[in-house]
Every structure is written in C-alpha cells, then in structure tokens.
Design a protein around this nucleic acid. Structure first.
Length: 257
DNA sequence: ATGGCAATGTTTCATTGA
C-alpha cells in the first residue's frame, strides 16, 4: 500500500502535475496540503476519473487539506473537534477499507519567532499532540502525513548554523514535534533513510533548488505496528523540476499492508 | 540539467509562505 504526501501550493495551479504523478507512481492514498480553495472548487472529477475517492477540507485562499484514495474511505474527521475558535483547515483523517487510519496535515508555518503566528503554531502543535494521544489508543495502524513545517534535526536543514533559532528549526518547535512522536509515532522517512540530507522543500527564491538549499519538513509518521511494515521510500526530486513546480515535492512510502 | 519567487484576491499592490 503506497501512501504519499504532497504540499501542492494551490491545487488549481498544480492539478495537471498531480494527475500525471498519480498516473506514473500510482499511490493508493495521496494526502495533499495548501489547496488554497473551497471544497466546492476542488477538481474532484479529474481524480475520480483515475479511480480515486476524494475527501477534502478546504477554505478560500489559504490552507486546505485533502486525501484521495483508491480504497473506500470511512470515518472522516475534519479538524480535531476542538476548534470552536479555529477556522483554519489543516487536519483531515479517514480510514481506508483495509483498516489503515490516515491523516493529511498542514502544520502552521509560524512566520517568525515572537509573532502571534508563532504562538498559534505552538498552541496548534499541542492541540495536535493531545488529539493524537487519544487516537493512537484506538488506531493501531495509523499514518500521519503532511507538511509539518518543522525540520527535526540539523541534517534536515541545508545550513544548521544559519538556521539556528529560526522559525521551522527552533528548539521549541523541534521539542513540540518530539512530544508528538512520543505519543507513539515513528518518523518513517528517517527509518528508511537513517542518515544524510533528504530535503522535501526548496524556496522559490535565490536558486535554492539548483544550489540544494533545502529543508526536510514534509513527513510521514506512523504507529510502530505500521512503521514495521514500511518497505520502500520515494522522495521525488524530479517533481521540483520543469514548469510551475510546487516548492515542495511528494514523499511516498510503500507499506506491506 | 534543476534556474534566478509564486499564488491569492483585496489586483496593478498587499499578504502569505518557509
């Protein structure tokens, strides 16, 4: 079972690229982030034509997450169920017909240390952790995939010294992400690629991609029972090439499920 | 060969991303 995640940076701008990628690598489930549109405007017909069931949680202009699946989806959850005061569409979960729970996540960027957005990010991370701590009790096979907007380790940023203390790489954010793992998740990309850089994002500016000034901020976390079944990894650098790429690339794990 | 910001809407600039 191939489970993938891809921050598309506007599904409207990227739909042809995503469709071509699905035809080529045939993910069973693809989690997407930064749709930047309302659910009614999601290009669902195109994905349905490839045999995918579509599940979206979008909003106008910003954020928005989706999941497409070749297996039927049930028990769809949008948000954590606690966001009385949170209108941002950043979390979607569903269960595939073979019993694997999957979530598509877009963690807040945080902008810069000391800003209200950074405070919101840290609070959001704690809400996410509390939600997952409950769900792992029930879902033994659970994959949480998405743009986490945190580089966990020094080898996950192109210049750890320059990134010291910067948003996406502060000790505070990395500790918050470690607390998420501690409720019962494994970083499956690192499990399959234990050492060395394996970036998933390069800024559009300053020739970041050709200079390989990237970050590893897109992740696939899985419960130990599911992580034990992880077989192969694809971090598809080719998707940063060509006309109008997203600034992120897809990350895919093939599980023996 | 992978290329010098990009996408959205409030549109001809401001906001956001990371």
């Amino acid at each position: 079972m191939k489970i993938a995640t891809y921050n598309v940076n506007s599904i409207r701008m990227r739909v042809d690229r995503v469709l071509e990628w699905c035809k080529r690598v045939q993910p069973d489930v693809l989690c997407m982030q930064e749709l930047k549109l309302e659910d009614a405007k999601f290009p669902g017909v195109e994905f349905a034509a490839l045999g995918y069931e579509v599940c979206t949680f979008g909003q106008k202009t910003y954020n928005g997450v989706a999941m497409i699946s070749k297996l039927p989806l049930t028990d769809v959850e949008r948000g954590f169920g606690d966001e009385v005061e949170d209108p941002q569409a950043r979390f979607l979960a569903a269960t595939t017909a073979n019993g694997v729970r999957i979530a598509s996540v877009y963690v807040p960027n945080g902008q810069a240390v000391g800003t209200p957005k950074f405070t919101y990010k840290l609070a959001w991370l704690e809400r996410w952790r509390a939600y997952l701590a409950e769900r792992v009790k029930r879902d033994g096979l659970f994959a949480v995939c998405g743009d986490f907007n945190i580089a966990p380790d020094p080898e996950d940023v192109y210049d750890p010294l320059a990134w010291q203390g910067r948003c996406l790489f502060t000790l505070e954010e990395r500790a918050a992400l470690a607390r998420v793992r501690e409720v019962g998740f494994v970083d499956v990309v690192r499990q399959l690629h234990p050492t060395g850089q394996l970036f998933s994002y390069w800024d559009y500016q300053m020739l970041a991609f050709p200079r390989n000034k990237g970050l590893r901020i897109d992740h696939v976390y899985a419960t130990p029972a599911l992580a034990a079944r992880a077989k192969t990894l694809l971090v598809d650098r080719d998707m940063r090439k060509g006309k109008q790429p997203s600034d992120h690339i897809p990350v895919m794990i093939d599980f023996d499920v």
